[in-house]
Design a protein around this nucleic acid. Structure first.
Lengths: 359, 359
DNA sequence: TACAAGTGATCAAACGTTTTAGCAGAAATG
DNA sequence: CATTTCTGCTAAAACGTTTGATCACTTGTA
């Protein structure tokens, strides 16, 4: 009844970490070679389907049978060792969990890496410098092809010294250091797109509730707003730009001020603010989109898709950031000279905006 | 000026993927040994701080200097090869991005793995069987210490054949196959805790809006509800149990039915339903928690912490699931015989519940 | 003085692959 | 028949480590 297979010879005192059934040692090339009655070289050639190799169909088949019978799996470590370059890409993130966003960066990086035959080695540092150094060291020791250094919100960063020992790309962050490749969301275009959603529905008096805390997003999204208005020939009115802390409370708290502005539409710095604003407007007996059209930014699924009415917004291209980061790392995508590469933020239209009723 | 170090001999025709500046080959043990005027064995001994090794302080220092000067990093592949066992743990997930949850499993697994000197190798399969097989194959080739097979929502699963070639632990899912270790959330206890939040605030007439779709969570959370009531001597009233599709719309749509039940409190199958219910109640001019106390389940941050009022709920222990999975894999945690190990779902109290006003 | 013990370091095999050069025999060529 | 070419396969070095065996000295002990 008791499947204690490996009668381990560990000293009994040293409470050995209770072992599982005990797996046999993995099958090696040599064992396959012996089973098939050929040399390891031959097996290797069959496994790797070398075109140039001359191997008879008969032998080829014998090797394949042996591989199947023994359940052979190549040892990637050994392959890497001899080939000199590994098939790993490292991803260090400052927050894997704190936000649903980071997940999308991982996702995009993983898909793209996989597509090119690379595996992802991830580490999250939670902003801890020491952990970060260790994580990068680990990746360097595994001789990764390169490292993606990512942050969960778009911001400037400095580059840890050890990072420079490898190829790397900054993802969702950037540095002024020359030669550092980076990919970030196109905040300006995003801000423009958000505003355009409202413009194209006929709104002319559009408020913008910006964030209070400084960030590339804050400047970029404002600039996009201005550009969009300008393109429509609407003069910029500083009075229509409010500022609040970029969360639900902030959005909620901005309601009063917003209503004083007599705008017909409002563009919020992010979806969370929009969500708070929903509550505020509702308390004033106003309905969306009839009394006020609202657009957000970020496309935070759990919020945007599920508030009532569903929120029109602009998505942060996290998946694309991860994927583009990998492509750039592998040299498949041209990295423009100085500035970070900007990734397009797509518009997501839902029902929080409708055509402005003629006055 | 031009730091073209590796004058690659790639045939010019084969448009080589435009290389970056060209990193020098990594420094090896041998180079350190030569620089320090010792054998590679000596360097290895210094690097690994072997207590048993006899090395003079003078030599030790010379080696350390060389290591620093050359910027030596051990090659983990070579180490793995000779030591026979790798320091990798694989994590295959059916959804990295679809949900903020998966991120927490990764996070927990990564932290715990790291703590024991392991690195995480991740792959997401998006439910694609072929991708999954490839991912597992990759992990087997890297000779991972074991594999965590995780799903984004708690459910039964079957075990891919190749998974059995390695040690593995099911995370957030389970199988009836004997010998499969698994760790899942304790839905029953969670349901009990959710109900207890309401009970302890004096509520006696508590409705439960369950999900319509079958799942371990559906049964478990209901059972927990019944157990909690029973413990308080409150007879179970099937009339107080509604069912709806487990999302915002479902919660919103259940409002009417709920109000007919004349309950003073309601426990929702998940936070998204609670969010929808918020909207429904509000439309009826009811306020939370005065007119109706509400608790959710899942502790989906973006929702629960930020609706108005913030929602009391029970958290799914995703982080812990990942961490416990790793511990179990490494044999640091006893895996009970047959059933999956159940992880505690902690209560998170916010402001959507207040003491029932005396009638 | 002879030998054991201790010290500081090295040798060389091994880990599981890939790959180049080369070998033996068969077939084609002159 | 003597060469060349082709075919099918193998030998062996290399990748960067770890580690048990060994060695040449020095020091201590009998």
């Amino acid at each position: 009844m008791n499947s204690q297979e490996n009668s381990s010879v560990t000293p009994l005192g040293a409470a050995a970490p209770l072992k599982r059934p005990g797996r046999p040692q993995p099958v090696t090339l040599r064992q396959v070679a012996e089973a098939a009655g050929v040399s390891t070289a031959t097996v290797s050639l069959v496994v790797n389907k070398k075109k140039t190799a001359r191997i008879s169909d008969e032998t080829r088949q014998r090797v394949r049978d042996a591989i199947r019978d023994l359940g052979y799996r190549p040892n990637a470590m050994a392959q890497t060792l001899v080939s000199g370059s590994s098939r790993f890409i490292g991803l260090v993130a400052d927050a894997i969990a704190t936000t649903p966003f980071a997940g999308q960066i991982i996702h995009g990086a993983q898909d793209e890496a996989w597509k090119h035959g690379y595996a992802l080695l991830i580490a999250n540092t939670e902003g801890n410098r020491e952990l970060e150094t260790d994580a990068i060291a680990m990746m360097l020791e595994y001789k990764v092809r390169g490292i993606l250094y990512s942050t969960w919100f778009h911001r400037p960063t400095d580059i840890p010294a050890s990072l420079k020992e490898s190829d790397f790309v900054l993802v969702n962050c950037f540095s002024t250091e020359p030669g550092a490749r980076a990919v970030v969301p196109d905040e300006v275009q995003g801000g423009r797109s958000a505003t355009e959603i409202l413009l194209k529905h006929g709104h002319r008096r559009i408020a913008f509730i910006n964030a209070t805390i400084p960030a590339p997003a804050k400047d970029g999204r404002l600039q996009g707003y201005r550009e969009a208005l300008e393109a429509e020939g609407i003069p910029f009115d500083a009075g229509l730009v409010l500022e609040a802390y970029p969360d639900q409370e902030g959005g909620y708290g901005a309601t009063e001020e917003l209503l004083k502005r007599e705008a017909t539409a409002v563009y919020c710095y992010n979806d969370r603010m929009a969500m708070g604003l929903y509550d505020g407007l509702r308390e004033h007996g106003l309905s969306i989109p009839e009394d006020m059209a609202v657009v957000g930014f970020d496309n935070q699924e759990v919020i945007a898709a599920h508030v009532r009415p569903p929120l029109s917004t602009v998505a942060l291209p996290h998946y694309e950031l991860g994927a583009a980061g990998v492509r750039m790392l592998l040299g498949l995508e041209e990295a423009p000279a100085a500035d970070p590469t900007k990734i397009h933020c797509p518009t997501v239209e839902r029902n929080s905006v409708r055509a402005l009723a003629p006055a």
